[in-house]
């Protein structure tokens, strides 16, 4: 070949790209840019970004029992929990404060793995940028609360499996309670009177606070 033919070949490559960007679909060498704010790619189910708290039914009915495990496990220590007390000063199984600092959270998902009550899960929310440094970067309890239906919507497989497990545990517990009740007319388990939440809330009768 003659002097400069390599240059011409290179020019042809870019020219083909130029033409293809107008007339070809994305999978045949055309443009594959998705113009983000208007159009977006479908969300992947396994995408995890920022934790949220799950509640069943109503926001008062949240699964979190303020056990503080997630706050202890959190590597950057971005979770801050204060337990709620009733009027007599007895501790309740729900948090009064549940704060997650967005700027500190590194989206590792360890809180989700550590939680024994299936209360905290990783979200799909990624548009968390803010214009205000003082207010919107610290997520409080009410900002973090999201319904189980939302969880089903964003991560159907995981949510279904977890619900299944919770139902089985519930049934097992009920069966055990019935068996115990039929065996001997004893008073029910100790944690029940202190618990203000309706039946489906505590799946496993353990005391993680002792840790």
């Amino acid at each position: 070949m003659f002097f400069g033919s390599g240059v011409l070949r290179g020019l042809m490559v870019t020219f083909k790209n130029f033409i293809a960007s107008y007339f070809r679909p994305a999978n045949q060498g055309g443009l594959f840019t998705v113009e983000y704010p208007e159009k977006r790619l479908p969300e992947k189910e396994n995408f995890r970004n920022f934790p949220f708290l799950v509640y069943d039914g109503t926001p008062e009915n949240l699964r979190c029992v303020a056990c503080d495990i997630c706050a202890k496990e959190c590597p950057p220590k971005c979770i801050y929990i204060v337990r709620e007390f009733d009027k007599e000063g007895r501790p309740l199984k729900r948090p009064a404060t549940f704060d997650i600092d967005l700027t500190v959270c590194m989206n590792c998902g360890i809180c989700e793995e550590a939680c024994p009550f299936d209360a905290i899960y990783m979200d799909h929310e990624f548009e968390v940028a803010n214009a205000n440094r003082q207010e919107k970067l610290l997520y409080h309890r009410d900002d973090l609360l999201k319904s189980n239906e939302y969880f089903h919507k964003i991560r159907p497989t995981d949510a279904e499996a977890i619900d299944q497990r919770r139902r089985e545990a519930e049934e097992k517990k009920k069966a055990a309670a019935q068996a115990a009740a039929s065996k001997a007319a004893k008073p029910p388990e100790p944690p029940k009177p202190g618990n203000a939440t309706p039946p489906p809330s505590p799946p496993k009768p353990d005391q993680p606070e002792q840790k």
Binding site: T14, F15, F18, S21, G30, L31, E35
Partner: peptide, 13 residues
Amino acid sequence: KVVGRMQNRIGPN
């Protein structure tokens, strides 16, 4: 625009 198209980008729009 043109360089963008050659690199399979859209360019300023």
